[in-house]
């Protein structure tokens, strides 16, 4: 009887650690769309930070979820550009804005992946448009 109990406890422990281990190894990706933004900024202020000091701005914004407000300058397939110098790769299931939204103010949430010094643009991915 006692033996059976021990075996049962051991089995439960093994099962639990297997579940925890599995969930750790196969954990979900971050969901930028549902994350609370670490910063809510105007596009012009955001880009100014990078122009002032790329290093400081990178340390501040890299890998963070950011909500940005700015004027939509161009749409190219699944990516958009705001204020001419902020590049967003839209999230996979996101519908791109319509051409009628060009030159209007839009709100976007995305994750900052860094500064592109070749084109002098900031890049963000997993972007979703906010209503």
């Amino acid at each position: 009887m006692k033996n059976k109990k021990i075996i049962l406890v051991v089995l439960v422990v093994i099962a639990l650690s297997a579940i925890i281990g599995y969930n750790y190894i196969y954990q979900d990706h971050r969901d930028i769309e549902s994350e609370k933004p670490a910063f809510t900024v105007k596009a012009t202020d955001f880009i100014k930070d990078f122009q002032n000091s790329e290093e400081e701005a990178t340390a501040k914004y890299l890998n963070k979820t950011i909500e940005i407000e700015g004027i939509l300058s161009s749409i190219d397939g699944n990516s958009i550009v705001v204020e001419n110098v902020i590049f967003f790769a839209l999230s996979e299931n996101e519908t791109p804005p319509t051409p009628s939204q060009l030159n209007t103010t839009i709100h976007i949430k995305a994750r900052c992946i860094g500064y592109d010094n070749l084109l002098e643009e900031v890049k963000l991915d997993q972007a979703t448009l906010l209503k």
Binding site: Y24, I25, Y26, L62, K123, D125
Partner: peptide, 21 residues
Amino acid sequence: AVLGLVKGFRFRNALMEEHFN
């Protein structure tokens, strides 16, 4: 000239992506 932002590499496995970074 080519520039790839390292954070922009996406893995299927989230933990692998974290370790990579």
